[in-house]
Simulated scan of single mutants.
Amino acid sequence: MSPPRRWPLHPQPRPLESLSSWLDRLAGLYEMPVKDLLTRNLGLVDPDVPADLDYDPPMAMLTALAERAGVELARLRAMTLAGWEPWLFDKLTVPLQDTQPMFDAYVRDNSVLLVPGEAGTNQVNRWRRWPGPWLGYWPLHRACPVCAADPGRGRALLWRLPLMTGCVEHGCRLEDATAVALSVAVGQEGPGPVPLAEPLATVDRYTYEGLTTGRVTLPGRSVHAGVWFRLLRCLLDEVSLSPSGRRNHGRATLEQVWQAAGLEERAGLTTWRPYEHLKPDVQEAMLHAAATALHLVADGTIIAFGRLASTLRLEHRHIYDGDRQPPHRSSWQEAIAEMETALALARTDRDAARQLLILLTLGCRTLDRFEEERAFLFGVGVPADFLPSARNLGRTDLA
């Protein structure tokens, strides 16, 4: 069978560009609607074009696109939200019965500012169904005014989520996509791009680094991108809590964060709701407070007691290199091979992952150290729901 015919025009996707944005640019070159491009030109017997191309498009469609446009299938998958499992989402589609356990695992099993367990046990489905982390109830359609002026740039996938506030490349705020497109279409000279101010700019840079490199360099240490997303989501939860329901230190910390942010406490929220259910302006205020908290912890203004707090604290340590001889090369290679075998099994076997976590944390004496080992396993591809918390393992001995 002859290979499928490559389309004559097939510009490559931009870094972090969404699938819908790339297809808009591609279809524009052929002067046809995206639907015609996908239904008449892919060679599919029964083409199924979803309404939301950025969510979880059919694998058959992505495979055909990869062949026609000469783009790797894995790259096309990463241009959709489904392609960010398990780093940004444990699961993109969460069954109703799993929403509370998912929230607890993604958000409440972690802690940053507060003592572990102090956040409480709020029910996420009390008002409306929780769609999962970062999937906002209020849709966001945003664009960078600088990027929009260049038709070859496109839109980033994550601009549709309440995760970033600006375009890191141009250092400006994201604006309503419809207004930006109209301004570009009529050639209207509107106000210049609005610079994204600190501390939101720092949080955006962390997120951008995680999206582009897979790791984030925080003040305390470098962490896997998946750890950063969960840390930030946990911090957003903590700043949304009522200070009056916390212990003395937690109450004082939350009050200090909002005072330093220069915003109304809890952004005016009177009844707790998960971040994804908040309106966009309230979400941005919560992000501003979370960014302020990151800065205050890093410079030592406030002391954080959460399991992930050590990632944010600047540490100045001098470690003597010593005179010990390095391990024998063959023994070291054997150890690495054994570890790789164990990790490969843990990525697909829940019991193996649990046993490996127990083994790696036998010598841990603090919750911070336990969470570092747990984060390491997650960072090398072991599913988050395979890794129980210290509480679930009965590690009541951890300080």
Rank of each mutant, 00 (worst) to 15 (best):
P11L: 01
Q12V: 02
P13A: 01
P15H: 08
L19M: 00
W22I: 03
R25Q: 05
E31Y: 12
K35Y: 12
L37Q: 06
G43E: 05
G43Y: 02
L44F: 06
D46C: 06
P47C: 03
V49Q: 08
V49D: 09
A51N: 12
A51Q: 14
D54N: 08
D56M: 00
A64I: 11
L65I: 02
R77A: 07
M79N: 13
G83S: 08
P86H: 07
W87E: 09
F89L: 00
D90G: 01
L92Q: 08
L92R: 09
T93A: 03
Q100G: 01
M102A: 06
D104V: 07
D109Q: 15
V112S: 05
L113T: 02
L113M: 02
L114G: 00
V115C: 12
P116M: 00
A119I: 04
P131M: 08
Y137N: 11
P139I: 10
P151D: 07
L158D: 01
W159Y: 01
P162W: 10
C167R: 10
A177E: 15
A185G: 01
V186Y: 12
Q188D: 09
G190D: 13
L196G: 12
E198R: 08
E198L: 06
A201S: 15
T202I: 02
R205N: 07
Y206P: 10
L211D: 05
R215P: 00
T217D: 14
L218C: 05
P219L: 01
V223K: 02
V223T: 02
A225E: 10
C234H: 11
G245P: 04
A252G: 03
Q256F: 04
Q256P: 00
A260H: 11
E264P: 08
A267H: 14
T271Q: 15
R273K: 07
P274D: 12
Y275K: 08
E276I: 00
E276C: 01
L278C: 07
K279C: 09
V282D: 09
Q283C: 07
A291I: 04
A293I: 03
V297E: 11
V297W: 08
D299I: 00
A304F: 03
L308Y: 05
T311F: 14
H316F: 04
H316E: 14
H318K: 11
I319E: 14
H328Y: 05
R329H: 11
S330T: 07
S331L: 13
W332Q: 11
A335C: 14
E338C: 02
A346S: 01
T348A: 08
R350I: 02
L359D: 15
L367K: 09
D368R: 10
E373K: 11
E373D: 03
R374N: 04
L377M: 10
F378Y: 14
V380W: 14
P383R: 10
P388R: 12
A390T: 04
